[in-house]
Each structure stands twice: as C-alpha cells, then as structure tokens.
Design a protein around this nucleic acid. Structure first.
Lengths: 218, 218
DNA sequence: CCTTCCGTTGAACACGTGTTTAGTATCTTA
DNA sequence: TAAGATACTAAACACGTGTTCAACGGAAGG
C-alpha cells in the first residue's frame, strides 16, 4: 500500500477532477463518461476500471466536493462565525466557483445529496438565528424553524438561479455578481423590513386564527 | 378545417396532457416518448405523427401550460392585484399543482423558457414594489430592481426546492404545505425585519463605500 | 531473468433513446 | 358507393449510452 496523500496527483485523481469540472459546468445528466474520458485524455474503460461504474465516479466527486467544502467552511467558521466566511468569500469569489457550481448542479438535480445539503443549511441558519436572538441582534421570531427554512430557500434560490437572475439584472452571467448586487438590498430588507405597516401581518394573523383572538406578541 | 375549440378532446390533446403530467412529475430528462405513449395508451410513432418530434411535443406542452397559467393569472389579477390571486390560491391549492409542478421542472431545467419566466416574475415584483412605494405601504428602497430580484429569487427558490424544504420542516412532501408554513414567518420578516439593529446595514454601507462618507439616508 | 501484477487501450455488447417506414383501419367527402 | 385523406400500429433503424472483455505494455519483486 502506498501512502494516501501522494495519491492525489495520479491519473485517477485527474479523472475525478475533470469529472467535477464537467459536472459543474454542464450538469450531471448532460455529461457522459465518454466526454469525461476524452477531456481527461484517457479511454472510457479506464473510468470504469478506477471507479467501478458511473455512479461510483459520481460518488467520488460528491465526496471530494463535499469534503473540501465542509472542511473549508468549518475551518473558516470557527473563529468569527458566518461573517468571516462571507468576508473571505467576498475577498476572492473565484476560489469557490468550482465547488459552488458543482453544488448548484447537485441542488438542481434533486437527489438525496441535495436534500441533505439543504437540511444542513437549515440547521446552520437555525443555529445562527438562535444565537442571534440570544445576544439580541435578531428579532425573537415565533416560528424560528420557519424563518430558517425561508432564509435557506432564499440562499439556495440565489445559488441555483443566479445565472438566470444575472440576465434580469443586466450584469455578467456569474452568480457572484448577483450575490454582490443582492447583498445591499438583502441587508436593507433584513434590517428595516419590506412593508412600512404591520397591517398585512395583523390581517394575516387574524385570518389564520379566526376562532379565538390571541394577543399579537407572545 | 375543423373548429379549434372542439379539438381539445382528441387523442392529440390527450397525449399532450399526459405528457404534461409526466413532465411535471418526473422532469423532462427522465420522461421518454415511450413512457408518454404507454401512459396515454398509444404507440410511440403517433407522438411523432402528431407533434413532429419530441421537441415539438415539448413545445406544445410549454405553450399549453404557459397559456393557461398566464391567462388565469391575468384574469385573476385584474380586479384586486396580487392579493386576490394569493387568496384564490390559498382557497384551493390543488387546482394549480399540475401547472406549478410543470413550471417547477422547467425552472430546474434551466432553458430559455425558465429565463423568460424569471424575467416576468421580476417585472411583476418590481411593479408591485413600485406601486407599494407610491401608496406608502412599502419602504422606499434605494435599489428597487435588486429587491425585486431578491423577492423573485425567494419565490422561485420556494417553488423549486419546496419538496426538499418539506422534509426539513417535517410536513408532507407537497410544496403547498411549505408555502402555507412559510407564509407566516415570511410576513413577519417582511414586516419587522430580521435584525433588531441597523448595525449590520451601516457597517455594510461603510464597507462598500469606503472612500467618501455619505449620509445614511438618501 | 522470469513472472506477476497493475494501469491502460480498443473493440465489442446490451440497452434505451428518438425517429422512420410500410402498412392497415377508419373516417370524410364528392 | 368509390376515392382519398387521416389516425394509428408494428417493426425496424441509427445513435448514444454505460459496461465488459481480451489483450498489451511496463514496472515490481523474487
């Protein structure tokens, strides 16, 4: 047996990396083994020999991308929470495009991987909200889980449909520019709200619990 | 030539409707002509005979779904704006699931259709925001287009990833239940905001325009 | 040196896809 | 009623896919 770390420059790793690149660029359904093999400069049979099957290759790519992403995220998260991560992302967005595009395609595909990914994002949002409520920077929402899911939906929506939104904004096709353009309005919305009145909210609350009148604040 | 309206009960229309159903349920890539033909009880060649090709069938389905959806939306929108539409949707969500699921798949597929769909949604959001600002119910945002794109992203995100979000919420798999669960938190967020302080917003504004200090309010 | 393993290739196979073609029944119309 | 168009089917075709298999080369090890 050879030592594991120096294995990462072999042909097998090169195949995996080209597969990740093509998957991230064109999606999983539209990327064939032959396309990957041609791009990597090897024969189609070699992919099967190294990864067993197309599903095995896909699994290896998932593991790689999720591995480096969660490792990066957790290492960057430890000191200063989410802000350091976002700051680092804003500093060099290009360093994360490959993994982000891959996750985007996985999300759009809608398999079990994307479900667990979303689940993790919701848990992360919920913990951020709870700690924010504790130190008083976040409003004490009645349905914390619901808010967490809503923010997670906004996040994955921006990731998944960033390229489409870019056209609507007139910026370049990258979703990074969309994120930067959306940041300001999002913060404004999250600070001051959208409506100027609470008429809609009270109307909604009255409509949803019509039988017994309950006080507005818990 | 026969009159157009009575054509809608022929085998051709039945094929189109089953295609829409299967496309909405399983997505476009995973739905073959043979599956549609079997489900409709006809031979595969008949689909080609009626629609010319698989792309032609897809086109007919797009036209049908977009047609009835925009017609419904505009007819329901005329009297009372968005609220009547949402109220009607809340009254019977099942009546819209087929078209919504179809649009969801089209969105996830990421073709030109979904781009124009998103574009329309952004325009709609922007007009709603502008009229809201005019009558004073919506905050006068500095970047209206950005807020419109953000809300549109939240909408399509909820539509596209509703089934996944349902699992995270523990409700049934339908995205309608997610919508109903998200409505309350969303309204709360849009009324009172997310943060209790404007510290993050001011910090962001100072960080994005570092060279010259500008007043906080325009 | 010989053998044995491992990475690698090229050709082939089985399968599912969209599409074509020939042929048959059914319906319309003069 | 006769003729012609139309609806429809069954079988086949061409193509792209994932996968298998026999073979070849070179490196490792006894």
């Amino acid at each position: 047996m050879r030592s594991a770390p120096q294995d990462d420059l072999t042909t097998k790793a090169r195949i995996r990396d080209t597969a990740i690149r093509l998957y991230a660029r064109d999606g999983f359904a539209k990327t064939s083994l032959r396309a990957i093999a041609t791009e990597a400069g090897v024969s189609p049979g070699l992919l099967i020999h190294h990864f067993g099957s197309a599903a095995g290759l896909r699994e290896a790519c998932d593991e790689q991308v999720l591995g480096v992403t969660t490792e990066r995220a957790s290492s960057k998260m430890r000191p200063g929470g989410l802000k350091h991560l976002m700051a680092e992302f804003n500093r060099n967005p290009e360093g994360y495009t490959l993994e982000m595009d891959y996750l985007r395609q996985a999300l759009l595909e809608g398999t079990a991987t994307s479900a667990s990914l979303f689940q993790h994002l919701v848990e992360l949002s919920e913990s951020v909200i709870r700690s924010g409520i504790e130190d008083g920077t976040v409003r004490p929402f009645t349905d914390i889980r619901g808010v967490a899911v809503l923010t997670a939906l906004t996040s994955v929506g921006s990731l998944a449909f960033g390229p489409i939104a870019a056209k609507a904004l007139g910026v370049e096709g990258d979703w990074q520019s969309v994120m930067q353009r959306i940041g300001g309005p999002g913060l404004e919305l999250y600070t001051h709200g959208f409506y100027t009145t609470d008429a809609f909210l009270t109307a909604y609350r009255e409509a949803t619990s019509p039988d017994h009148d309950e006080p507005q604040e818990a």
